[in-house]
Computed example of a mutant assay.
Amino acid sequence: MQQNRHYRISIFLLGLIIVVFGISGCQPKKKNSVIDEKFRIDELLFEDKFDSGMNNWLVEVAPDSTVHIGIQNEKLVIDTDRGATVWLNRELSGNVLIRYKRRVVMEDGPNDRLSDMNQFWMASDPRNPDLFTRSGAFAEYDSLLMYYAGIGGNYNETTRFRKYTGDGNRVLVHDLTDEAHLLKPNHTYLIEIVVKDGQTNVFVDEEEFFSFMDDNPLTRGYFGIRTTWSRHEIDDVEVYRLK
């Protein structure tokens, strides 16, 4: 009897192991992201899940704005009736990936407008080592040296990539107007910006929107989240070093 009991327990355990490993083996492998396939991520340099205030950020807002910029439900909220830029307060350099989530809120708020999911990166001021001297009005950034992507600008009619050359010139590199490259209301986008070996790329929900090989690449500078007259939620900001 005792031997039969041990035999039955052994058969049961063997069957359980087969079931567990069989189920595990049937699980689909996690799909690598486009970034994982194209680039080699080295180390995490920075992350902010907005669960401990805004110590990592500097805010510039246009004069006479009605604006709220702060943390709500562990997300950075930019709710403004005029221009606003929120800068990460540390300089980035070399080959990097900037990754974050962003939603344009459309819930009948006073500033809810489907437009201007904008960002600056590798930004510097060739005339002033202190970048953070502007009011938030868009034209004041014309003198910067930086890359710019504006998704769903001009009342969600254009999506553009520019290089600002530091002398007031804003070189238009890409201009997209088809619906697939414009904004959807209340959709949480994954934005990924790559700077690597003279080239910069912008991916939106893992689709490459922009790619630019720069003859005079910008290799260091600041990252800024930009909008005007709209309400945006930002979350899960990460910066990685790329190999």
Score class of each variant (00 low, 15 high):
119 Q>F: 11
28 P>D: 03
114 L>C: 10
110 P>K: 14
119 Q>K: 07
176 L>E: 11
118 N>Q: 06
133 T>A: 09
27 Q>M: 14
27 Q>L: 15
52 S>Q: 15
115 S>F: 02
125 D>E: 05
113 R>D: 15
176 L>R: 13
148 Y>C: 04
214 D>N: 13
135 S>H: 05
164 Y>K: 05
22 G>F: 03
41 I>Q: 13
5 R>I: 05
14 L>S: 15
102 R>P: 00
123 A>V: 13
210 F>M: 08
128 N>R: 03
182 L>K: 11
31 K>F: 02
118 N>P: 04
31 K>G: 11
84 A>R: 00
226 R>G: 09
109 G>R: 08
53 G>L: 04
191 I>D: 09
194 V>H: 10
45 L>C: 03
119 Q>H: 15
112 D>M: 04
16 L>C: 11
132 F>W: 14
41 I>F: 04
86 V>L: 06
189 Y>M: 06
28 P>N: 03
146 M>G: 00
144 L>Y: 14
125 D>H: 06
149 A>E: 12
139 A>W: 14
239 V>Q: 04
4 N>V: 06
183 L>T: 13
179 E>G: 00
200 T>R: 07
62 A>V: 00
72 Q>M: 03
22 G>T: 03
151 I>T: 08
48 D>K: 04
9 I>K: 13
154 N>Q: 09
188 T>I: 14
92 L>S: 02
78 I>F: 00
38 K>R: 13
61 V>W: 01
32 N>F: 06
199 Q>C: 11
241 R>A: 14
192 E>Y: 12
173 V>R: 03
51 D>A: 04
114 L>A: 12
237 V>K: 02
9 I>F: 04
175 D>P: 02
230 S>T: 15
215 D>G: 09
212 F>H: 08
116 D>H: 11
99 R>K: 13
219 T>L: 12
237 V>C: 05
104 V>H: 02
160 R>S: 12
78 I>A: 07
159 T>D: 02
178 D>L: 10
223 F>V: 10
110 P>N: 05
186 N>C: 04
195 V>L: 06
14 L>H: 04
83 G>K: 02
215 D>L: 12
84 A>T: 13
17 I>T: 14
234 I>N: 12
23 I>K: 02
146 M>Q: 09
151 I>S: 02
44 L>S: 07
167 D>M: 08
208 E>H: 00
221 G>K: 04
49 K>A: 13
110 P>D: 08
137 A>T: 14
57 W>E: 14
36 D>S: 15
26 C>N: 12
170 R>L: 11
177 T>Q: 11
211 S>Y: 01
243 K>F: 12
34 V>R: 06
215 D>K: 14
162 R>Y: 13
157 E>V: 02
174 H>Y: 09
137 A>W: 10
74 E>G: 00
197 D>C: 00
158 T>D: 09
105 V>P: 08
189 Y>V: 08
81 D>S: 03
26 C>E: 06
162 R>Q: 08
119 Q>R: 15
231 R>K: 15
27 Q>Y: 07
